[in-house]
Amino acid sequence: MEDKISKIKQNFEKEEGKISPPELRIKYLGRHSELNGLLHELATLSDAQKKATGSSINKLKKYIETQLDSLESLSDNSQPSEDFDPTLPGNKPQVGSLHPTTKVINLINQFFIYQGYSVYEGPEIETEENNFGKLNLPSDHPARELMDTLYIKQPEYLLRTHTSSVEARALTNEALPIRIVVPGKVYRNETENTTNNSMFYQYEGLLVDHGVNMSHLKGTLIAFVKYLYGEDVKTRFRCKYYPQVEPGVGLDIECPFCLSVGCMVCKYRGFIEILGAGMVHPNMLKSCGIDHTKYSGFAFGMGLDRLVMTKYEIADIRKLYNGELVTL
């Protein structure tokens, strides 16, 4: 038996370079191979012999397999099959992408979540009370008319004109202290053009706690603007009027197109306004049931669309939301 086994090994080694590996595999490992035949003969042997011979057969089998494996892998590289053209393009998987506005919201959320804010939401169909009344905008306040509200049922129900309505809800319903940011859709009754759409996005922030003052607002906004525009961005804090806040702040960044010299883009201001902010008006705190002698807070709000448009080089706001935007 052992002789037969070593004979098979010799034959294999002789033929190794001459016959193709698949043929060798059939001849030496196939069902009708000599080696397989020997396995059947094992039955005739004594137990002790069975064990010894069986192990020799298995050893040879393993050896042949290893040899064949390495031969095959060699031949794969050295002799590519004729129809294999590695320069053909790959099969790209279809990959989906998020809308640019969602991406910008995620980017900004990331900053504020790290600062301890919760992402908060509210309805788009609002009451006059939450959209105006609680925000220190009593009826007959000129700002109400300036906002060109879309009404569902005048004067009570409307489409929110700003995300500040959610501040009123949060201040009324959530426990203090509070830190929230609110991204969301807002609506205005506007003639649509490249810069105006009846629906657009705002991003609102609110922090109310003990001992909050304008230095905290300034610190937060500067850190945020640096996060968004880079460490070297130049900012300008202006006094600005918003009914919901007192004192009010307008935050500008240096115009990146003219570096504050003045150009068409910044309307020769040298700066571009990016958000409005201020200390929450005591009337607003009061109307939401908060003791303004114990708590103070700041709020800020910004339009998101211009940010998205600048980042993704989109010239027409309508294209963001009318299905003409193809994400690559």
Partner: peptide, 14 residues
């Protein structure tokens, strides 16, 4: 006006 990040403990996440 100085610029300082709020140093109060952040409230519970909503």
């Amino acid at each position: 006006i100085p610029a300082i990040l709020p140093n109060m403990a952040p409230p519970k996440n909503i």
